[in-house]
Write a protein that binds this DNA or RNA. Structure first.
Lengths: 185, 185, 185, 185
DNA sequence: CTCTAATCGAGACGGTACGTCGCGTCTTACG
DNA sequence: CGTAAGACGCGACGTACCGTCTCGATTAGAG
């Protein structure tokens, strides 16, 4: 139960239950803002006993973290090179294409009540990666640069997914490049 | 209760109660993240009856909005000219000086659980002011510009108040100017 | 305020207010069971300020007692001779005719939530009158006789007003005479 | 929760909780008039969570009905033959002996605020049993006979338990026979 | 016919109980 | 004999009503 993820449980039932909760959670997240989700609703949707939930997660926050973590890892993996590459615009486009492919998932994560937590996790993970890409010549403190850049990227993506889903990824990529990337590199 | 603020109720008791709730709320916000506040705690601190709270506000959200609204108005009044003035850096410094003067209040509003709501309100109000300063020549959609700029300003201020309170306002002003203002003007 | 009734207040306003409350109370009692009445409802109906109610009565119970007391006195005045007279049947008919004349009032008092209190008051007042009509030859203890007879009279009247309002007073009088009067004299 | 009783839940905890509430309720009923009982008091006495009460009953009324129903059934089973038997006096004595055996319980039910409800339930149940014992030759309408007889029995019992507990059951039986039974058969 | 006190309306307030909801724990019955 | 179902303790919520209180604004009835 403790760390919930990884530990690659050998028990098939455990994997089954987790998948069910995982999927039910994501499905509900699309219909309902995160703060209004209840354990009961998730377990009902997952056709799982109420108490069972707590055998796998400490609470909805952890389930969110669990679900979001891997998505965040992947998004982050797309985001980091943006700040490292010579051709940052191209990287931005790759990033936006990636998000466009998981449109509804990321809209749930970025435009609802889940988003402060997602942002926090995203920023925290980004921080861990920063030492690897020291950029001492900049006049901006690294910790601020990380916060600013990641927040800006997420803000722009959130704006896209919520208010402007009809615009092409390439356009968004240009905005990200202009507003979030250029100022810090 | 209706609109909660204004309408300047002529009854002294009402003003007294509201002030008490207002102050108690702010005092608790410094010690406790917003999401963990309870009506009971606020009314206890305000030395007010529990039910009385609901005679004035529909819930803690509305109290937060009520408390934050006027602060936001003032901060916004400092922020807008930043994007309009010839000497934007000087305006940024004025903004940072203003925030430094209300250090602990704004730290509560920007670094705790209240901040998503504050940001939302801030962005919404900023949106209402944007038409007044049309900037058609920009290649960034106005609604994105508003979201990006206000979010960036708040992010930078939040970083300052939470992680770097020892830095002088002028330095922060420079960051704001570089990261949030320049890219959109 | 204290004893509420009598004291023949010289102030017209007081009399006016009391009458208004009195009437509003009776009017509501017809529509609503006593236990569901609220002070607010009574004062609203009486077009009177909420606090004004408490300037005249300690609570709804007292208002009920106040309203009921005089009615009970009158009913009791009709009831007592029933047990004293040679021709008890005729007295019973007088009693029933009297009740028939205040049909809706007594239905409210006897068939709703007010009835336990009315009964209690009725029995208590009857008790006070019993010494005057000692009937030592009976095998039934006087205190029981009073309780039984008054309760029985009220029960029969309540049954009439609630379930059999179409029957003539004379028929009810016969029942009262047979069931409540004869057994105790 | 639904029908509250019966359906013999197989879960021990449920039975345990209901018994606790049941007992606590009866214990409090001895000390306190029914209308002044609170759910809080009952649950406190039952050492049970407040909300748990509502998982079993809709309110105190239902709990009273629940508790009283079985007692009423038993008392009624003793009462009915009184009106059917050749030797009604002997039946009355059986009835009084039975009540004497549950003295404190019935005093709580009949002499406090619970009694109007108990009476109502008692009368209602008696009504359901009446068709079985048609007595067409009587000149008293059956529905009145039921109301009168059951009310009279309860009134006499209540008088006994409240004001004359020292009298022997046989004496009370005589009163019941004289006042409540004879007039209707 | 005025002046002065009492009464009035309005409704805020502290308090208490209600009935509901969700959480996280822990017992139970069942497979 | 372990696991899924769900009862439980807890505590916050928002509502309703009570009875008290403080305000002016009237309005009687005594001088």
């Amino acid at each position: 139960m403790q760390s919930a993820r990884r530990l690659a449980s050998t028990d098939l039932r455990i994997a089954r239950t987790r998948t069910a909760l995982h999927d039910a959670f994501l499905a509900l997240l699309v219909e309902t803002p995160f703060e209004q989700l209840t354990v009961k609703a998730v377990t009902a949707r997952a056709k799982t006993g109420y108490a069972t939930f707590f055998r796998h997660y400490h609470g909805l926050d952890q389930l969110l973290a669990d679900v979001a973590a891997e998505e965040i890892d992947q998004l982050l993996a797309q985001t980091i090179p943006v700040f490292d590459t010579a051709d940052s615009l191209r990287s931005c486009e790759a990033l936006c294409d990636y998000v466009a492919g998981k449109h509804s998932l990321w809209r749930s994560l970025l435009t609802g009540g889940a988003w402060p937590r997602v942002r926090e996790e995203f920023v925290a993970k980004a921080h861990d990666l920063v030492p690897a890409m020291e950029r001492p010549e900049s006049r901006i403190p690294p910790s601020l640069a990380v916060v600013f850049a990641t927040s800006a990227v997420l803000d722009i993506l959130a704006w896209w997914l919520r208010d402007a889903s009809d615009r092409p990824p390439s356009e968004i990529a240009a905005y990200i490049n202009t507003l979030a990337v250029s100022p810090v590199v």
